[in-house]
Design a protein around this nucleic acid. Structure first.
Length: 159
DNA sequence: GCCAACGTTGGC
DNA sequence: GCCAACGTTGGC
């Protein structure tokens, strides 16, 4: 399985919101960036691991892990005129935006804040920490995953 | 295809 | 709230 990091502003949709969702699962919709779209559509598989990251928080932090419950499919919100994510240029034959479903897995015992991530050995090359990096869905290596779970107080193995 | 203007993200 | 970095749009 591969690993990913997904950003969400807690004001908009938090880790607790995910845990409170039916079956602890939600549609990861509204991604409107082509690079992230390509990951959602082409790369992310059912069963992959997700680090749930709170952006625009104090401090920004990885707060929990989730599992991809369903691989990429067209984002329903692009077709919905009522949705804030509605894309007026949509073509039903050729959907532009994609989603995955994710299910909350484990909360970190202690959230791992951005300053701590920056200081941790082995995370120097994380996409998240790259200058100017804004990707809201991004790859995480298996090593980075293990390091962050350990920093968060979780044993790396168990589900 | 260039690039200026504009919009968004996200740390601080 | 500020603003740097980045992405997108659209005139030409």
């Amino acid at each position: 399985m591969r690993h990913w990091l997904m950003k969400s502003e807690p004001e908009r949709f938090s880790w607790d919101d995910l845990r409170a969702s039916p079956r602890r699962t939600t549609v990861w919709d509204g991604v409107r960036n082509y690079q992230a779209r390509n990951l959602l559509r082409d790369e992310i598989r059912k069963g992959d691991g997700v680090l749930f990251y709170h952006s625009n928080a104090n401090p920004p932090a990885v707060v929990g892990t989730a599992t991809v419950a369903r691989a990429g499919y067209p984002d329903p919100s692009q077709f919905d005129p009522e949705s804030r994510y509605h894309d007026p240029k949509f073509d039903p034959e050729n959907p532009r935006w994609f989603v995955v479903d994710i299910r909350a897995d484990r909360a970190l015992r202690t959230p791992v804040g951005l300053p701590e991530l920056r200081e941790a050995r082995g995370l120097e090359k994380m996409v998240l920490l790259r200058r100017g990096s804004r990707l809201s869905v991004q790859p995480v290596t298996a090593t980075e995953w293990k390091i962050i779970l350990r920093l968060g107080g979780l044993a790396p193995r168990k589900a």
